[in-house]
């Protein structure tokens, strides 16, 4: 129970910090908007194209925006070196990590909530697509990226070229999740078939990596 309270405290603290320093959130959101807008210049934003490759476009945009959000998960702690404070506290590392997982997830979902309607408009997504399915895919896929990305964000703060290393670590490991989320979204955008298999795979990825991230939390969250 105490662990949940610590995780909750970590989460609310992060959210509060993001709300207070809103400029970084605004910049992140604007960056994500730019990605979608640039995509619609780079590719013909016709409905038939969306039906064919829309899933890929959407997730590359989410991934770009997500990487900025994930980088912030631990960079947020840098200015006052509050990470050392967190690590010196007796709180279990897994609880801190769980709080960080959820705060990254919430931040990414907030950006995606703005991005998804914009994408639908700019890329002329047919109004008959199964939105429930897309939303479920987004939630499952975002959790996959949030968990692995937050863990690697904790890893990369110790390294040189932090911002470069995060995608280098995240993208290879996230490959099966990316395949699944793109394919599942594609199923709904092209209104063909069912995404059950991809959902199962994404869900499996989520469960396995959440467990592994919590299990190995104290490997990366350790005072040197």
């Amino acid at each position: 129970m105490a662990d949940f309270r610590i995780a909750w405290a970590t989460l609310t603290r992060d959210v509060r910090l993001e709300l207070r320093t809103r400029e970084s959130f605004n910049a992140m959101l604007f960056y994500a908007l730019l990605v979608v807008v640039i995509f619609s210049f780079a590719f013909e934003s016709e409905a038939e194209l969306t039906a064919r490759v829309g899933g890929g476009l959407l997730w590359v945009a989410f991934l770009f925006a997500g990487l900025v959000a994930l980088d912030r998960a631990f960079v947020r702690e840098m200015p006052g070196d509050t990470l050392t404070g967190l690590l010196l506290s007796p709180a279990p590392r897994a609880a801190l990590m769980a709080g960080k997982f959820v705060s990254s997830f919430v931040l990414m979902l907030t950006i995606e909530a703005v991005l998804l309607p914009l994408f639908a408009v700019l890329f002329n997504v047919s109004s008959e697509v199964h939105w429930g399915g897309i939303v479920l895919t987004v939630v499952l896929g975002t959790w996959a990226l949030a968990v692995t990305g937050t863990y690697f964000s904790a890893m990369s703060i110790h390294t040189r070229h932090r911002a470069l290393l995060l995608p280098l670590l995240l993208l290879p490991v996230a490959i099966p999740a990316i395949i699944s989320m793109v394919q599942a979204t594609q199923v709904f955008l092209s209104r063909s078939g069912v995404a059950n298999y991809w959902w199962k795979l994404l869900f499996g990825f989520d469960v396995v990596f959440t467990a592994l991230g919590l299990l190995l939390a104290d490997v990366v969250l350790d005072v040197d």
Partner: peptide
Amino acid sequence: RLAAALACFFFVDVPINYMAIRWW
């Protein structure tokens, strides 16, 4: 320490990759 954690992530990832790639 970090490298060892990453290696564990890879190990868990390979079977998921195998399933995803085969289905894809």
